[in-house]
Amino acid sequence: MSKKAVCILSGGMDSTLAAYIAKDEGYDIIAVHFNYGQRTQNKELESFRNICKDLEIEQKYEIDIPFFTQIGASALTDKSIDVPTQGVKPGVPITYVPFRNGIFLSIATAIAEKEEAQALFIGVVEEDSSGYPDCTDSFIKKMTSAINEGTKESTKLEIKTPLVKLMKSDIVKKALELNVPLEHTWSCYKEEEEACGVCDSCRLRLNGFKEANAVDPIPYKAN
């Protein structure tokens, strides 16, 4: 019997690499994408669909979560809050979406239970979390415990975080090694046509490519 994994796939570089690692480990992938009112929602959805084609994923879920825009409190979902472009500062940044990964993992768990999957892949990275509390190894371990406590006895889910301890440059190198179509991935928090190059996410991505001595294939606005 084939083993199945639910992969939370945002369309970004990290989650895409995590899905390629799942494939490399022999899992049949069920892809899950969330439209949650983020500024680059359309671009991320386009990236997700392209990556599903690249990976030849047949089973995919596109889930709408409208309530994040109702609660706001994040520069990603509230357009009245500017996305910071001055570089990473200490503390939890304004781009943190309240308990987003906890909610994503809960929904993905329901799908995994229905699909009788054995694993759930998420591309969280502690270094890149920029102070996001829901991207830590410790949080994922506790979520795994809660998930297995709150599902059927026959559901035994492992949350796999193959990138959690990697630096962004390691992620770029690993992605190139696995022939991940990085031109189909999107990381920018602000723009959908050309990446801004100055938000925290763009800075981390560009720095990762620079340290890996590689060229980022996506378009950036000229600085």
Rank of each mutant, 00 (worst) to 15 (best):
E193A: 15
I107R: 02
E194W: 07
K160H: 14
Q118M: 09
K23P: 01
D216Y: 02
E191H: 13
V97Y: 01
I21L: 14
N101V: 06
T85G: 08
F67G: 10
E25G: 06
I122M: 07
T185K: 08
E62K: 10
A75W: 14
E149H: 15
V215M: 14
E46M: 15
I122P: 04
S130Q: 13
S154N: 11
I111K: 03
D64N: 15
P90F: 00
S10M: 01
L120R: 01
L176I: 07
V6M: 03
F104I: 11
D24I: 07
N207V: 00
P181W: 00
N148D: 07
I71K: 02
L176W: 01
D54A: 14
A18P: 09
L55H: 05
V164Q: 13
Q118G: 12
T95Q: 03
I29W: 05
A112N: 01
A146T: 13
K168C: 03
I159N: 05
P93K: 00
C7V: 10
D14N: 08
E116Y: 04
T85Y: 05
K3D: 15
A119M: 08
S15Q: 09
K210A: 07
E115P: 03
Y36A: 07
T69K: 14
E115K: 05
I94G: 01
A175M: 06
K190Y: 07
D216K: 07
K4G: 12
S2H: 15
N50T: 13
G102W: 11
K152I: 07
T85K: 13
L76C: 07
I94N: 03
A73Y: 09
I111L: 05
R205H: 08
V97N: 00
K4Y: 12
H33T: 07
V164W: 10
I107A: 01
F68D: 04
E113A: 08
K174Q: 10
A18H: 05
V125W: 03
V198Y: 10
N213M: 10
F121I: 06
A108I: 02
G26D: 08
L45P: 04
E177S: 14
K43P: 13
Q70W: 05
I57N: 09
T185G: 03
L55E: 01
V92T: 14
S80Q: 09
C196W: 08
W186H: 08
T16K: 04
G26N: 11
G87A: 04
L9Q: 05
P219S: 10
G208T: 02
N101M: 06
K160R: 15
C52K: 10
T161D: 06
E158I: 10
L204F: 12
S130M: 11
E115L: 06
K210S: 06
S129H: 02
L166S: 01
E56H: 04
G11T: 03
I29M: 08
S106W: 01
K210P: 05
L204H: 10
A175R: 00
I159T: 02
I71D: 05
P217R: 06
S129W: 03
S145A: 14
L182R: 07
H33C: 09
E194M: 12
L182T: 03
F139T: 12
V215R: 14
C7Q: 00
P133W: 04
P66D: 12
M13V: 09
E192N: 15
T40C: 12
E211S: 07
V88N: 04
F121V: 10
Y96F: 09
I111E: 00
Y189M: 08
